[in-house]
Amino acid sequence: MPHHEMHFLQRSGWLRAAVLGANDGIISTASLLMGVAAAGTDSHTLLITGVAGLTAGALSMATGEYVSVSSQTDIEQADLAREARELKDNPDSELRELTGIYIQRGLSPQLAGQVAQALSQHDSLAAHARDELGLNEANRANPLQAALASALAFASGASLPLITAWLAPHAQVQAWLIGSTLPFLALLGAIAARTGGANLLHGASRVVLWGALALVITALIGRWFGVNV
């Protein structure tokens, strides 16, 4: 019978890209706005800086994810092509190799041979891809999915501090950014942990810690240089 049970691992591809994008969008944009605000810029310049950061960041995230995951896909395809050649040229050797893998996992030699024979007759390349190379549909790379998820997540995350800077009184924009960004990060960390089946407190606290550090450092740098952009 077909297997329909959902596992957290099946979410790993898009979840990693989405969480990374949203987290980067919130932290980088909020930090950028904090640094520019600390340098003494006016409201108009601050908002233009935020919009530019959102646009550039979303495109950069999409490009980076696409290139990175495409490289992973190329490696996977190269390994599959090599395995297919080996199965064609040395099927007996590959069958013994698969049998050895199952023996190492705890099956008796006789049962391991039967399992390897049955799986090879069904789809030998799929059996070697899964059990020798560690590739399966749950963790296969998808460049376009990762790129779109990263871009949308970054834009969504970056829009939160940008809206905060737009609504906040200019004299209090830094306080508003800190007061809104850290709860945003905590919520993101908790959602990511919940979606991935991890501990909610750990997921939220580690994001908040690094986000707070980024905000403080960029604010200090902006105040130190005091350069109007």
Rank of each mutant, 00 (worst) to 15 (best):
F154Q: 11
T181S: 10
S159N: 00
A171Y: 12
A186H: 09
A175L: 14
Q172N: 13
T181A: 08
L188F: 02
L162C: 02
L152I: 12
A186P: 15
F154N: 04
A165P: 01
A153C: 08
T164L: 13
P169K: 09
A171P: 01
S180N: 15
P161A: 07
L188I: 06
L160N: 02
L177Q: 08
A168S: 11
P169Y: 08
W166T: 09
Q174K: 11
L160W: 03
L187F: 12
P161W: 13
G179S: 05
L177R: 04
L185R: 03
A151W: 08
A190N: 00
I163E: 06
T164H: 15
G157W: 02
A192C: 00
T181L: 04
W176M: 09
A175T: 10
L188T: 01
A151Y: 09
L152F: 14
F154G: 02
H170R: 04
P183K: 14
W176L: 08
H170D: 00
A186E: 07
P169G: 10
V173P: 12
Q174W: 05
L187E: 06
A190R: 02
T164V: 15
F184M: 11
F154W: 09
F154K: 08
F184H: 13
A153L: 10
L160I: 12
A158R: 06
I178M: 11
L162G: 03
L177M: 05
L182W: 07
A153I: 07
G157Y: 00
A190Y: 05
L185D: 02
L185S: 04
L167D: 11
L162P: 01
P161T: 06
L177W: 08
L152K: 07
A171K: 12
V173M: 08
P183V: 15
